[in-house]
Design a protein around this nucleic acid. Sequence first.
RNA 1: GGCCCAGUAGCUCAGCUGGAUAGAGCGUCGGCCUCCGAAGCCGAAGGUCGCAGAUUCGAAUUCUGCCUGGGUCACCA
Length: 577
Amino acid sequence: MREKLQQTIAEIVRGLMDASEKSAALPDFALERPKREAHGDFACNAAMLLAGVLGEAPRDIAQRLVEALSTCPEVVKRAEVAGPGFVNIWLAKESWHGLLRRVLEEGAGYGNSARRAGSRVQVEFVSANPTGPLTLGHGRQAALGDSLARLLAAAGYEVTREYYFNNAGRQMRILGQSVKARYLEQLGLAAPPPEEALADPEKAWQEEVDGLPVVFPPDGYRGDYISGLAARLREEHADSLVEEPAEELFRETAESHIFGEIRKTLADLGIHFDVYANEKDLLKEGKLVEVMDDLRERGLVYEFEGATWLRSTELGLDRDRVLLKSSGEPTYLLPDIAYHREKFRRGFDRVIDVQGADHKEQFPFVTAAVGALDLPAERIELVMHQFVTLSEGGEQVKQSTRRATYVTVDELLADVGPDVFRFFMVQRRAESHLAFDLDLARDTDWKKNPAYYVQYAHARTHGIERKAAEEGVGMPDAASINADALVLPEEIAILRKLSDFPEVVGAAAESHEPHHICYYAQQLAGLWNPYLQDGVNHRVISDDAPLTNARLGLALAVRVVLANALDLLGLSAPERM
RNA sequence: GGCCCAGUAGCUCAGCUGGAUAGAGCGUCGGCCUCCGAAGCCGAAGGUCGCAGAUUCGAAUUCUGCCUGGGUCACCA
């Protein structure tokens, strides 16, 4: 529909330009869906853009466009000049009727395109290090990244979901030490550090308490899960691990257990990764040494005060960064560069990193280094998201990572369920701060909770089908559908909304903004729920067979689009609620 | 202090490659059950788009300065 109109107008515009003998590129005019219904089905700004090229008044040009359009009544029912030179266009009602068949024919594929077919994209997200349960920030990133991956797949990309974590450095060492410390404390061989010492290790740290040594590291991990891990080890091994180094069994047990928990959390969210990559493997495969050598060969590496530095100022950045600490350990930066190089070696056409705002500063160093290694760093894109705050009863729920008193994804998930969780987490633009409204999320009243509102709209299409079955009325299929009986403005409005879907999906995919799908789904549900409610004017199943056929078809088409939208968001599409 | 993000209705936020009378959800207020799901629907009130300039036919949208909130500026990840 839109394509046809776009083409028609392009031809007219070309004609006007040829006639004017002014040579210029065809203006990139917009054919948009006006916000106000009074402005027609489509509005075109071509006249205003042409005004500059042709040197004529926009409204005069618009008038000529309108006249030209009136010669193709099979597409355009009415066109008029409006405002500063818009051309508002009304389509014949019938032109929407073919849509129903198309939606039913394409089904789960409606909204997809092949535009990016053959192109491979990797989406890296979550990437939390296995030092504790996922936080809400990770949860947002999980929902965001997975929806983005689904959108990209809908745009035709071959998508790889990937999770990368650091498991070779200091963090993991401290994790092992933390677990071992709790283990020794539980055996009565060590003393836990006092609260005030943990609050300010700089000042109040003590090596000994009540004659027992304090072995818990000042910057150790303090969550209850650490004590839990220690208790498990104590049950399995009693006191036989007292001499065991913290960096081996303790660390490894902690890592694998915590990572298992993270994967379980993600599975509860319906999120599965294709690849889990980690720092240790890169190290083992010699990728770190290799990157270091290649950077050094390009004169981008130097030694200073015992550490090895990346000469990033040479790459246009504001400072140099350490690659290898004086201890000989790599910083996160070196494996990150190596990892991103591997992404290209693995043949991805595009690489998307989903990261929290706290990582934004680091991103340019990775891309600059990757670029210096003669790789197309501009194909690495960053999707950055802000943090999540919880609000309850109008108050912000206090979160402190430092004190390990934060709400975890598991807890919130147990509270509101995966569907609500995901909907709320992708509802907002990534760059905008997300205030998670716990009261609304917990509200099971579908008319209030937007996630349920959308799901319920979908469930109702099945309700209709159940009703039809009771009445012995069969559902139409793509071949038998005839939408001609749909003439009410609210029916045409729903058809118009359904027709927008592919474009919304395409735009959301290209801009990496899944939140548009939430808005769209709410809007469609906001048309469908009220429509269905008014059983007097819109009775679906009636004695009027053609009308029943058309309205049942409408219900099926709405179901298809809502189901597809819910799928893009990773929500279930229930048949009843 | 430098850089990044945000500041739009009481609240939470869309809209931001410049376009017509700035939208949604929640909340508030007022109506409506002869109706396939009242587990509902309809309507209303509510705005100096942080402030001040600039660009132009036209700015919530672009540019500059400032204010406010958050992030970040480690040999932490």
